[in-house]
């Protein structure tokens, strides 16, 4: 039985998906201009990553390994994730129009978010149990949201800063991300 706390702390801080594994960078720079957008995106990612972990685990364990077709992993996972995201979008649009207003524009972006596919592949690689995978997916989503929120806070302030012309917008965002990643490196000293 793996230690769930170790998995959670590992996914949120030590191996933060964005700042240490470089997964999910497109939305990280794309929607971190405003804190409100960051919250919506973060929520959507947490939901999708948790559910994607929960769905891909039984598929890998009971379908792919049973029939020795692990090499179909990539095709199966991406199709399942893409279908699932579409399904979530339709369900939310029909039953929770308010929530759809918040998450709607971010959901389609998630299909090609490597963080979601990444967490599914990593769960297999690490050999986590079902519970472990779900905890890993959820914590990785939290870690992503944390990084996104920190980043959007920094960028909102940068708007009022006197940034050299050639560094404006994205370049300075990357440099800020470097400093943020440097801060997160402190967690890598933790021995779990």
């Amino acid at each position: 039985m793996e230690n769930l706390l170790v998995i959670a702390v590992g996914a949120i801080f030590v191996n933060n998906f964005v700042l240490s594994r470089f997964l999910g960078l497109c939305p990280f720079f794309g929607v971190s201009r405003k804190t409100s957008g960051a919250i919506g995106m973060g929520l959507a990612v947490i939901i999708v990553m948790t559910c994607a972990s929960a769905i891909t685990w039984p598929i890998y364990t009971y379908l792919l390994s049973t029939f020795n077709i692990e090499f179909m992993e990539i095709v199966t996972f991406i199709l399942v994730i893409a279908t699932f995201v579409q399904l979530v979008e339709m369900v939310i649009r029909k039953y929770q129009p308010d929530l759809y207003g918040v998450l709607g524009i971010y959901l389609p972006l998630i299909t090609t978010n490597c963080a979601v596919m990444g967490v599914a592949l990593l769960n297999v690689e690490e050999g986590y149990s079902f519970i472990g995978s779900v905890v890993d997916g959820f914590s990785a989503g939290i870690g992503f949201t944390l990084a996104l929120l920190l980043m959007s806070g920094i960028r909102e302030r940068l708007e009022f800063a006197n940034v050299p012309k050639s560094f404006q917008d994205l370049p300075i965002a990357f440099v800020s991300a470097a400093l943020l990643a440097l801060a997160f490196m402190a967690f890598s000293g933790m021995r779990l």
Partner: peptide, 21 residues
């Protein structure tokens, strides 16, 4: 390490911007 990656791409993009400006 990760910070180096972000820093490198940030500076390269700034150089491209500088050239374009």
């Amino acid at each position: 390490l990760p910070p180096g990656a972000f820093l490198t791409i940030g500076i390269i993009m700034a150089l491209i911007n500088y050239k374009n400006i």
